[in-house]
């Protein structure tokens, strides 16, 4: 027996929410497939299958009913985000390891949907980049730069059989990688930007994918799936930090626009940092959370051991989210200002 209210808003459910978020990912994914070849479809499907499989196994082991959890769409969204965050055309077991960490370790060991402390997709990503950094830096090159563009069957071959094409033929470092290589090697930002992988603003192709993510994110904001706080604060903090660094040493630090468009900035700003389960929830908390994450992203990219810092900064802030929430509670109606 459930009390009032007796009427619920129509067309609201967890599944519907997840489907709308995935819909917002479609333009970015299409752009990705267009610029980097059809391999992404293989990793998408493979990750989704793995996700459902791991989810089902975890539910059975935990003695929970399969039904609402398996079809709420959350595991598909995780799979989708992970597939977009790691290189396509990597060996099948790499995706499997990533999805295992995402679904089993990050989600179900913490108690399933809504209970996880860390963003599952980012845990999967972090586990992979820490464990297999070599594979995680071999990104498919934009089709315009690659010697070979693997078609769907080549891609299937590469992922599941191993393939005979050497990675050098179809992969390249990302712009963040080439930037880091250049600046660490004593060269300047301009040297790095002279590389063919660099497009107008950031990575060739990748910058357009980032713009598509931005459109998807705006769709989510207009649909009230997310509020503006996290994306704006995240991107603003990236821009600000990058701007300050560039101002201090223009030769060795890329500018705000580059950092906003490169790597996982856009995906992180709209789709990953905004994961409501693991992010802050109060308006002020969201600003602090995303602001610190954006700041850390640029710091890790510039001074850290890995090329991109989006995943690590968001994971770090995930641990701080409950704490930030606790002291950024909004003023409750009828309570004087400044009184907690």
């Amino acid at each position: 027996m459930i009390g009032s209210p007796f009427i619920l808003k129509e067309h609201t459910s967890v599944r519907f929410t997840m489907i709308k978020v995935m819909a917002a990912l479609v333009p970015g994914t299409l752009a990705y497939a267009w610029y980097f070849g059809p391999g992404i479809w293989i990793s998408l499907v493979w990750c989704s299958l793995l996700g459902i499989g791991f989810e089902a196994v975890a539910l059975v082991i935990r003695g929970r009913p399969l039904q609402p959890a398996l079809t709420d769409g959350s595991v598909l969204l995780t799979a989708w985000l992970l597939a977009l965050s790691i290189p396509t055309l990597a060996p099948w077991w790499l995706y499997m390891t990533g999805m295992f960490f995402a679904v089993v370790v990050a989600k179900h060991l913490y108690g399933g949907l809504g209970q996880n402390l860390f963003n599952p997709a980012m845990v999967g990503y972090a586990a992979l980049i820490i464990s297999f950094p070599v594979f995680m830096t071999q990104w498919a090159a934009p089709t315009t730069l690659a010697n070979i563009v693997p078609n769907l069957s080549d891609a299937f071959d590469l992922v599941f059989v191993g393939g005979s094409i050497t990675p050098d033929a179809y992969t390249s470092a990302t712009v963040l990688d080439s930037l880091k290589t250049a600046t660490r090697g004593g060269h300047t930002v301009l040297d790095a930007f002279a590389q063919p992988i660099h497009g107008l603003i950031a990575g060739k192709g990748m910058e357009l994918v980032a713009i598509m993510y931005l459109f998807g994110g705006l769709f989510m904001i207009s649909n009230r799936l997310i509020t503006w706080h996290i994306p704006v604060a995240f991107l603003a903090a990236i821009a600000l930090t990058a701007g300050v660094l560039q101002g201090l040493d223009p030769a060795h630090h890329a500018g705000p626009l580059f950092h906003m468009m490169a790597g996982g900035s856009m995906l992180g700003a709209f789709f990953i940092a905004t994961d409501p389960v693991t992010a802050c929830t109060t308006p002020r908390g969201k600003l602090i959370f995303a602001g610190l994450a954006g700041f850390l992203t640029v710091i890790i990219r510039t001074f850290g051991g890995y090329p991109d810092g989006v995943a690590f900064s968001i994971l770090i802030l995930n641990t701080a989210a409950p704490f930030i929430d606790a002291f950024s509670q909004p003023r409750v109606f009828g309570h004087a200002k400044g009184v907690k």
């Binding site: 950094p133 070599v134 830096t137 071999q138 990675p167 050098d168 992969t171 470092a173 990688d177 880091k180 290589t181 660490r184 090697g185």
Partner: peptide, 11 residues
Amino acid sequence: YMTGATISPRA
């Protein structure tokens, strides 16, 4: 060198 990691051997 190893693919993806050229800075260290270069140095």
